[in-house]
Simulated scan of single mutants.
Amino acid sequence: MADPATRDATYEDLLQVEDHLVAELIHGQLVTTPRPAPRHARASSLLGVELGGPYDKGHGGPGGWWILDEPEVHLGSHVLVPELAGWRRERMPGLPETAWFELAPDWVCEVLSESTARVDRVEKLPVYAAHGVGHVWLVDPVLRTLEAYANHEGHWLLLNAFENDDPVAIAPFDAVTIPLGGLWAD
């Protein structure tokens, strides 16, 4: 049983966290992690570039998405900050006026690091599933892997795993092939 003297963290607690940390609220707890290391940030940034052209801008692909870096996503009492998230424009025709999103993304990408992998897998994935996020990709820039999952009745189903220089064309971004090797720092 929870200690009655403790209280759930609030959004005000989150706002007090220093800028050099990423702050999230997960199951009432304030969770902080360091800003991404260069290898981590590079993989995230380059994946955003690869997806942004064909899916967000419609250059060489179908368009119809908003692809955003580190959006603040409010899912019930949880406040999460994935590295990347995407919304189909048919579900979210315009961007909100707030600094956060209350509509669950259609796709989320978490870039794993030693300091975030447990939280991303154990804490955040169930929250994303419960709130209807359709797809999650987990990218590990050290292992040079990408795991793609689909939400099936509130549980994650592994669609496929890719490594090194594999070409990636998988839901929800299967109309264009992404060269996975371009994400890794040399």
Rank of each mutant, 00 (worst) to 15 (best):
W66N: 00
W184P: 05
I170V: 15
F173L: 11
A150D: 12
H27N: 14
A129W: 05
A117Y: 01
D69W: 14
A171D: 07
F162K: 09
I170R: 09
P4N: 03
G76W: 06
L25C: 04
L103G: 09
V81S: 06
V49E: 14
M92E: 04
G53D: 13
A150E: 15
E153T: 15
Y11S: 13
H155L: 14
G94M: 12
L75S: 01
R88N: 03
L103E: 14
T33L: 05
A161C: 13
L125S: 10
H20R: 15
W65L: 05
P141T: 01
E83V: 00
A169I: 12
A5N: 07
L14Y: 05
W87S: 05
A43I: 00
D19N: 04
T145A: 05
W65S: 06
L75W: 04
D19M: 00
V122H: 10
T177Y: 02
P172V: 02
D186C: 08
I67T: 03
H78N: 14
A148W: 01
D56P: 07
P126H: 01
P34V: 00
W184M: 07
G60W: 10
V122T: 13
R35K: 13
R121P: 01
E24R: 09
K124N: 03
Y11R: 14
Y149Q: 08
L103A: 14
A169M: 10
R42E: 06
L183C: 03
I170F: 04
P36T: 01
D120E: 01
D56E: 15
L25M: 05
T32M: 15
I170A: 07
H20T: 13
F173G: 06
G52Y: 10
P54D: 09
G182F: 09
L80D: 09
T33R: 11
A169D: 11
L46P: 04
V168K: 10
H40I: 00
Y55Q: 03
E72F: 06
E72I: 11
P62A: 11
P105D: 03
H27F: 04
L158T: 08
L146M: 13
P93R: 08
P36Y: 02
I26R: 00
V133F: 12
E97L: 12
N151A: 03
N160L: 10
L158K: 06
Q16M: 14
R91H: 14
V31E: 01
G48Y: 09
G154Q: 11
C109H: 10
D13E: 06
E123N: 15
R118F: 11
T33K: 12
I178P: 12
V142A: 15
I178E: 12
P82A: 10
L47S: 09
V81C: 12
T116F: 01
H59P: 05
D186N: 13
A85D: 07
V168S: 09
L146C: 10
L75D: 06
A150N: 10
D106I: 01
T98R: 15
G181V: 09
A150M: 12
V136F: 05
G58C: 14
T145Q: 10
P93G: 11
G94D: 14
D69M: 15
E18R: 15
A99H: 12
K57R: 15
